[in-house]
Amino acid sequence: MALTLAQANQQRKRAAIQAAEAAPAALMEGATGYEVQMAQLHQDQLRLSNLQSTELKIALKAELLPEYVPYVDGVLSAGRGAQDDVVVTIMLWRLDAGDFAGGLDIADYVLAHDLKMVDGFKRTVGCVIAEEVAEAALKALRAEGGTFDPDILERTRALTESHDMPDQARAKLFVAIGKTAFKSVNPELIDDQAMLQLGIAKGALARAIELHDACGGKTDLGSVEKLIKKHAGSAS
């Protein structure tokens, strides 16, 4: 059942107070608001586990997410970095549901305070964030006429830049950045803006290949370099 405005405000304030009281690197376990949210999360995870369809799971996560907004907002506003599995899980759900800006807002807090992944994940938080966004971008780009927000990719790169992860995972993010920039270019209309995007694409794809030779960016890099060379020849 959806919270009333008054209930949401009360929950947000309670979460902020309890998060501020929990010391960095401590656990939120024992905090009343946290325990209530964990109980709700367990119930919702059970509902998700009863679904076999990934598409239906994503739709259910999107439906459930608003219920956690007051608590998460409260933690993000005043939290000091205590381990919080609710916040980490909702970060993942937002990314799964396609709310990348919202997921990265939480990721900023999670990474800044070095929160750990919830049980069942072997990858680090930085790796999960980089791969989740990169895979979503690459999937979108594979669709005919598909696009992805380059600002989300750049924000993801900046957020995860200093965090350890396998080179293959970081390469995937650079491939997504490169492909997104390249796909934004109309090869029949190469102006200064197009050249800027081609430069971004070239740099990102070259970095991806440097990190992981089999990243899948070589064909695109060849096409980018060919287009840059062609335009340079035409300009001269």
Rank of each mutant, 00 (worst) to 15 (best):
M1Q: 12
A6G: 06
A8V: 11
Q11C: 02
Q18H: 01
A20F: 01
E21F: 12
E29I: 12
E29M: 12
E29S: 15
T32F: 08
Q37P: 00
M38L: 14
L51D: 14
Q52E: 15
S53K: 08
S53D: 14
T54C: 01
T54L: 12
L56Q: 15
A59W: 00
A62Q: 10
L65C: 08
P66L: 10
V69W: 00
V69A: 13
V69N: 10
S77M: 01
S77I: 00
V86K: 01
L92A: 12
L92W: 04
L95W: 01
F100M: 11
A101V: 10
G102L: 05
G102V: 05
D105H: 06
L115F: 08
V125F: 02
V133M: 08
E135L: 10
L141S: 06
A143M: 07
T147R: 13
P150C: 07
R155A: 13
L159D: 10
T160H: 06
D164V: 09
P166G: 09
D167Q: 10
Q168W: 02
L173P: 02
F174D: 11
F174Q: 12
V175K: 11
V175L: 11
V175M: 08
G178H: 07
T180R: 03
F182P: 01
S184A: 15
E188K: 13
E188Y: 03
Q193G: 09
A194I: 03
Q197K: 15
L198E: 05
L205M: 09
A208F: 02
G222P: 02
G222I: 07
E225N: 10
K226Y: 02
I228K: 03
K229S: 13
